[in-house]
Simulated assay, not measured.
Amino acid sequence: MLRILITIAALCFAGSAAAQDFPAVHHVTGVANHDVLNIRAEPSARADIVGSFGPHERGIEVVGLSPDRRWGLVRSGEGVGWSSMRYLTPQRTGSWQDGTQHLTCFGTEPFWSFNLFMPSNRAEFEDLGMGGFEVRSNAPHHNITRHPATMALRFNGARQGFAVIRQGVCSDGMSDRLFGLETQIYWQGAREGFSGCCTLTP
């Protein structure tokens, strides 16, 4: 039931124009050196604590906001939870669509990973069947749409193909973790593509 509520809350926020700013990487601010920033099971100060961040922790990916925008959906170990946005500050300006942020995409059945080293156009794909190879994307001169927020990248080099990355609550299928970006990847000559999630944090 908690997972359903989390998903609904994140999707509610994803419907607004400001949702293009999420997911985004944040760091903890305003927490005393001897204290922690709690991660809670629901977006409420009365909800159970499921984890915590240190007072100087960085690289926290906020997937989306609660409807009142006071709480951010974050990952905690193999699960997810909510932290107060009062103590989370963006580590950089801009949007995940601007083609300047490293993206790590991955999926299961089969297991695969795709590292997009933006703002360069270098990318590395690896899966059990094809092995690993390097390609070049058209980033940062890629295509986007605003509503809904998507980004499309073309690849050439060792293989030719394209990927569409879109904002949406995504599960890795192996844990209770949620991600803020989902992707589909297609290689030329291959009838079946790959579906998975992407994160802004390595």
Rank of each mutant, 00 (worst) to 15 (best):
P67V: 05
V63A: 06
R58S: 11
S113I: 05
F106E: 14
S83A: 15
C105N: 08
F114G: 02
L128H: 14
N121E: 01
S66A: 09
E126S: 09
A32P: 07
S120P: 03
A45T: 00
L88Y: 04
I39V: 15
V50N: 12
V62R: 02
A41Y: 01
A152Q: 15
V62T: 04
G77Q: 11
V74L: 08
G64T: 07
H27R: 15
H34S: 14
S113H: 11
A123M: 03
H56G: 00
P140Y: 03
V135M: 13
S84C: 05
E78V: 00
N138L: 00
H56F: 13
S137T: 15
T89F: 07
S84V: 07
L73R: 05
A45S: 11
V31P: 01
R146T: 10
H102L: 15
N138E: 06
H34C: 00
F111T: 14
H27T: 04
D68T: 08
T108M: 08
T145P: 01
M130Q: 15
R69P: 01
G129T: 00
V74P: 10
H56P: 00
L73E: 09
R46L: 13
R86G: 07
W96Q: 04
L128V: 14
R69S: 13
H27A: 01
M85H: 08
T145F: 07
V50A: 06
R69Y: 09
T29R: 14
R75D: 10
V36Q: 14
D68M: 00
D127P: 08
W96I: 01
F53N: 01
E78R: 14
P110V: 06
R58K: 10
F106Q: 14
H26P: 04
G72V: 02
I39Y: 11
G51T: 10
G30D: 13
A47D: 08
E42C: 00
R136A: 12
G79P: 08
S66M: 01
R40G: 02
A45K: 05
A41H: 06
A149G: 06
L37A: 04
S83E: 07
P55S: 02
D68A: 07
E42L: 15
I144F: 01
E57W: 05
